[in-house]
Design a protein around this nucleic acid. Structure first.
Lengths: 234, 234
DNA sequence: ATTACTAGCTTCCGAGTAC
DNA sequence: TGTACTCGGAAGCTAGTAA
């Protein structure tokens, strides 16, 4: 009984066989069709089957001109193991992303928009509070954080604030992500904002909270802060 | 944004990165260590990272001499898809294995053993009945079924009959698998036996039932029968 | 219609090494 | 220490084709 590891290239082939029900019963398969399904040539499929057979991952029995194929227990276990390790790695994903940056004096712009009634009412309803008028602006200190910042909006937000129109102009949506400032002990219910139409680039993080973060956490402009954004789902 | 498919060889690399937590945050990784973990050389790991980066599956930021690496949403999705298709193929496994063969006249041997008290009492307790004295012997008609027969004992049996000793000699265990004869309408509670010490080869199937299968199903020697063995778990 | 051999091309990998 | 280049060999694939 050969003991060699299964080859990566063979995975798709076994998966295809299993999908055809070739686990406990023999199933007739042609190499042409198999090749098509795995995106390879007929010859490649033929080679796969040969190698899988000599390695003990499948069994074949000649049926006329074709073959009937069955995945052995060994082959099945191999795919199970691989599947398990994929799942494990997917589920080991951390549920938070951490940023570091320096507090800078906000231009007051973000604060102005967030205080509009169209936003304020939604904040109250969806976050449970009206933000302190004055967002905390954090300038990220490393390219690394800016890259992470860029993909932040891809994640499921903890609250989604709809855009609206006041008759004169329209205002974009806002995604809110629950966040902790520094060790999280001084500020409750902070949230990082991702705006549909932002006036900043990826190097900036805007944080809101029911109270003034600077006062409550004793932070002043130029101080370095950690912002830990919690991601609800993967 | 490149649209090429992910390469099979890169899967292990991404999985390793994910296991290191490189989903939402950047993680420092050296190519030497990465190579070791995926069973490849440092150079191979380096190439993987380069290719994964240009394909948009990961992001890297130089941190001194090393790199900090993060798996992008694109890379994550790719592994998710693969994982999903693996799972799907594993779960699509049929729950029964079907045999075809001809009924032959039993030599009475199997029937004799099964009627021993050491077996009979266990059958009553674990199957709920005492088998009709006389097992149905089915000679499999195709290599295909014999191969499947060989691995039958690997599966979880619906009942396990312990071996025993009568002071003179010892008797081996018996694994029972719930089975249906032909369309299953005439025979209830049939079971296929896998014996620790069988006197047949893989071309024979021994079936028991509370009543005489031949009489109840109107089968005579030489008739072709289908035996469908139900597998409780995968 | 099948499977699978051969030849040739491409890709992948490891060793050596530059930086 | 690091990364990643070049180069030679191994492995994988395709096309053509035999059986």
């Amino acid at each position: 009984m050969p003991t060699e590891e299964i080859k990566l290239q063979h995975i798709l082939t076994i998966v295809e066989l299993l999908s055809k029900g070739a686990r406990n019963n023999f199933v007739e398969v042609t190499t042409t069709e198999l090749g098509k399904r795995i995106g390879r040539s007929q010859q490649a499929a033929s080679k796969h089957l040969l190698e899988l057979e000599t390695s003990g991952y499948i069994e074949r029995v000649k049926r006329g001109q074709k073959f009937a194929v069955r995945v052995t227990g060994r082959g099945f276990t191999e795919i199970q193991n691989l599947s398990a390790s994929l799942r494990a790695s997917l589920e080991s994903s951390p549920t938070a992303v951490v940023f570091e940056g320096n507090v800078i004096s906000g231009m007051g712009e973000g604060a102005y928009y967030m205080s509009l009634e169209g936003y304020r009412l939604q904040f109250r309803e969806k976050l449970g509070y009206e933000p302190y008028p004055g967002t905390l602006n954090v300038r990220l200190v490393d390219q690394l954080y800016m890259n992470a910042r860029r993909e932040l909006g891809m994640h499921q937000p903890s609250a989604f604030i709809d855009g609206f129109s006041d008759g004169t102009r329209t205002y974009g949506w806002v995604k809110c992500y629950r966040a902790k400032i520094n060790d999280g002990s001084l500020i409750e219910s902070a949230a990082v904002l991702v705006l549909e139409r932002t006036h900043y680039d990826d190097s900036m993080l805007e944080v809101i909270s029911p109270v003034s973060i600077k006062l409550a956490a004793g932070i002043k402009n130029g101080d370095k802060v950690k912002v830990r954004v919690e991601l609800p789902s993967a």
